[in-house]
């Protein structure tokens, strides 16, 4: 973990309510896809945890959805503005188990960390299939970007406005895959988890206090006992996940 001041170089609307923010700063501690950063915003007490969509030397890309006052404040920021960011948080995805054709299941803004993951997998000679679920056509983002990396891409929308009508799990039907990586809302993760026969890794969201393992605010129960989403996760193995009744 490292604290750094980052400068915004780009902050633009990507789709309905979804933004892309590009930042420059010290990315030394941003080690693995699936990790997140925690952003301090002027006038807000708690930081905002946002997963890393892409990283290169000195450059971070974040995708975020405006869901409250904090993210609305982020959306109003301009290139040249600076942010206090804690980087290198969370465990990230493990790439070793991917096999030859892993499935990347993204629900809404949960697609963000799968982009860097796709890039990293392709760099290892693996060809992932990205299945990206959204509510409406206006919400769809990054389908072209995933395709440009060399991924097979299937889009699903709940109202059928774009791609397959239905959820990520509907779009998964007929796709053969070696392994699953999933990120999205809990209901979506659970649906994917229930339908996946093989193994996989699932990245969770949580309301966090600190983001680095101190406060026990984001704990969830697992087969190996209580774990902190921020420090022991956000990525959990399929076999260790327990769902609340």
């Amino acid at each position: 973990m490292r604290q750094g001041i980052f400068t915004i170089t780009e902050n633009a609307l990507l789709a309905a309510g979804a933004y892309k923010m590009v930042l420059t700063g010290d990315t030394t501690d941003v080690a693995a896809p699936g990790q997140f950063v925690n952003i301090a915003l002027p006038g807000r007490f708690l930081r905002r945890p946002i997963s890393v969509c892409d990283r290169s030397e000195g450059r971070l890309t974040l995708l975020y959805k405006t869901v409250g006052k904090g993210t609305a404040q982020m959306a109003a920021m301009r290139p040249g503005d600076t942010l206090d960011v804690l980087t290198g948080l969370g465990n990230g995805f493990s790439l070793e188990e991917a096999g030859s054709t892993p499935l990347l299941a993204g629900g809404g803004i949960g697609a963000a960390p799968l982009y860097w993951l796709a890039k990293a997998l392709i760099a290892r000679g693996v060809r992932p299939h990205a299945v990206l679920g959204f509510n409406r056509a206006a919400d769809v983002f990054y389908a072209d970007e995933f395709a440009a990396l060399g991924c097979a891409v299937t889009v699903a929308t709940a109202d059928g406005g774009a791609g397959v009508r239905g959820f990520v799990t509907d779009a998964m039907k007929g796709v053969s895959y070696s392994y699953v990586y999933a990120c999205g809302p809990e209901a979506m993760l659970r649906a994917v988890w229930e339908r996946t026969t093989g193994d996989g890794q699932f990245s969770f969201e949580a309301r966090m206090g600190c983001g680095f393992g101190a406060c026990m605010g984001c704990t969830r129960q697992t087969t190996a006992g209580p774990k902190r989403v921020c420090k022991d996760g956000p990525v959990f193995r399929k076999g260790e996940i327990l769902w609340e009744a």
Partner: peptide
């Protein structure tokens, strides 16, 4: 103790609320 169910954390002006429950 496992503590309380999620969510355990909320924010407010000038501070935060926690309901960890002695995990």
């Amino acid at each position: 103790r496992y503590g309380n169910p999620q969510p355990r954390i909320a924010e407010c002006a000038g501070g935060m609320l926690n309901a960890v429950g002695l995990q």
